[in-house]
Every structure is written in C-alpha cells, then in structure tokens.
C-alpha cells in the first residue's frame, strides 16, 4: 500500500468516526470513552511485531515490544470488561421487552 491509499483510508475513517460518534447517545458517553480506550489498544499489533522480530540487532527493541504487549493487554481486557460491566447496568423502566424501533 502506498502512502496515498493509506491516507485515503485514514481520511474516510475520520468521516465515518465523525458521524458514528455523533449518533452515540450522551447517556453512553462514559462507555464510549472506555470502549474507544480498549480499541485504541489495537496498537498491540505493533507491539507484537516488535516482540516477535526474529532478526535484527536490537534485543532491547524486543523487550520494549513485550512490555508494550503487556500494557496494551491490560487496556484491552480492562477496557472491554469495564465497558461490558457498565452497559449491563443500563436498564429500561419496564421488564417488558423493548419495542423494536
């Protein structure tokens, strides 16, 4: 992939993000922050590449990567779990199933 196609994906994703986030109900803004926190830990991809690099002179690079894997994992598991816990608390007034609308 060249730089321009990467940039196109980025710009499009910014627009998607803009519209998707405005549609989030304000009552769920705290879970939104928790879940964005969890998904931004996709940076673990870079950490995994660094820590599994077979060659290359730097042993330090590998360990830094491994440390990043640990930090990102705290965030991924913590972020998704706490979001789930929060979302489970949001209940409607009645026990009746919500009207599909």
């Amino acid at each position: 992939m060249d730089f321009l196609s990467t940039l196109s994906i980025f710009v499009m994703a910014c627009f998607v993000g803009y519209y998707v986030v405005w549609s989030v109900t304000p009552a769920l803004h705290t879970p939104l922050m928790a879940v964005t926190n969890a998904i931004s830990s996709v940076i673990i991809v870079g950490a995994l590449i660094a820590s599994s690099a077979a060659t290359g002179g730097s042993e330090l690079s590998k360990w830094l990567g491994l440390l990043a894997v640990v930090l990102a994992s705290v965030n991924i598991f913590g972020g998704f779990a706490v979001t789930r816990r929060m979302l489970a608390m949001y209940k409607k007034k009645d026990k009746k199933p919500a009207a599909p609308k």
């Binding site: 928790a34 926190n37 931004s40 830990s41 940076i43 673990i44 870079g46 950490a47 590449i49 660094a50 820590s51 690099a53 060659t55 290359g56 002179g57 730097s58 330090l60 690079s61 590998k62 830094l64 990567g65 440390l67 990043a68 930090l71 990102a72 705290v74 965030n75 913590g78 972020g79």
Partner: peptide
Amino acid sequence: FHSLVGMAAVLVGASAYLNPEA
C-alpha cells in the same frame, strides 16, 4: 487506561526505531 495506550505507543515507536527492519 489512556496513559497505558500512550506508553504502549511510545514503546512501539521506540522498538520500531531500534529495529526498523522488523
């Protein structure tokens, strides 16, 4: 949690700098 993402980004950046071939 934000601080962890930030630190992870720094660490990944540093390891990429130290081992760009990977």
